[in-house]
Nucleic acid binder design. Sequence first.
DNA 1: ATCCCGGTTG
DNA 2: CAACCGGGAT
Length: 264
Amino acid sequence: MTEQSSLPFGKTDVTSEELKQLIDTEEAIIQAKKGGVKDTEQQISDFINCIPNLLNWLEDHGRRYPWRETEDPWKVYLAEILLQRTRGDAVEKIYSDVIQQFPTPEALNQASEEEIREVVHSLGFVNHRQRTLEEVGRIFTQEFNGEIPNSIEDLKKPWRVGDYSARATQLFARGEPMALVDSNFARVIGRVLGYEMPQQPHKSDDVYALLDALTPTDSDITRSFNLAVLDLGALVCTPDSPNCESCPISAACHYYRLTRMEGD
DNA sequence: ATCCCGGTTG
DNA sequence: CAACCGGGAT
């Protein structure tokens, strides 16, 4: 059999015909129009046709982080907390230490404040992180019998665990199809579609509606799709000087067409 | 929906 | 000195 392994990137070998069965194109068009996307039907169609390229790019260029090699909800959840407003490379340096020191919610619950502060120190946001982790240990131990909750709502109970971290856990650990919205994601989608992003995209219901519609409703493809957009934003479609020449979806990119007309 | 916060690192 | 796989408070 050629059954593709799910980790680290999910399913990256997909045809655009398959994708069209898994994407709510009608809804995506409706939502895209709200963001002022020009020539909407064609733009969405072009984007979907480029997704296979995007997923192939991920297979070759995607970042391999340890939290992408597991579907253990605890390890994924901890990683998402550490990754809040923080570079992946910085988290990678301390990640194994965190997992070793806090292999379970109970272990975290037993840890001292100084112990927690020390291990996350290099990430910054030390006060945030300390309080969050303390609450995670206490709440998961006392209210959930040491288990990792299996709903967005419950995952958000500890202070400073919001939609992004909770959704990311359900997506990467439980395979629930849904879109993530972070700064990278918003920038990439905004540029490609020519969608006018609000100032805080991760709080916009419209943005979630658009991205949830665009996200393929298959566990392994949702995974690859989200990781691909994330890594594209971090490695190629960077904030100030995007490297459009090496972008796998420039053929469908509204921003790229603009820069070609102005530039060089 | 808007404003503010956070702290190490490259 | 901005940036970083956001979130709380108002």
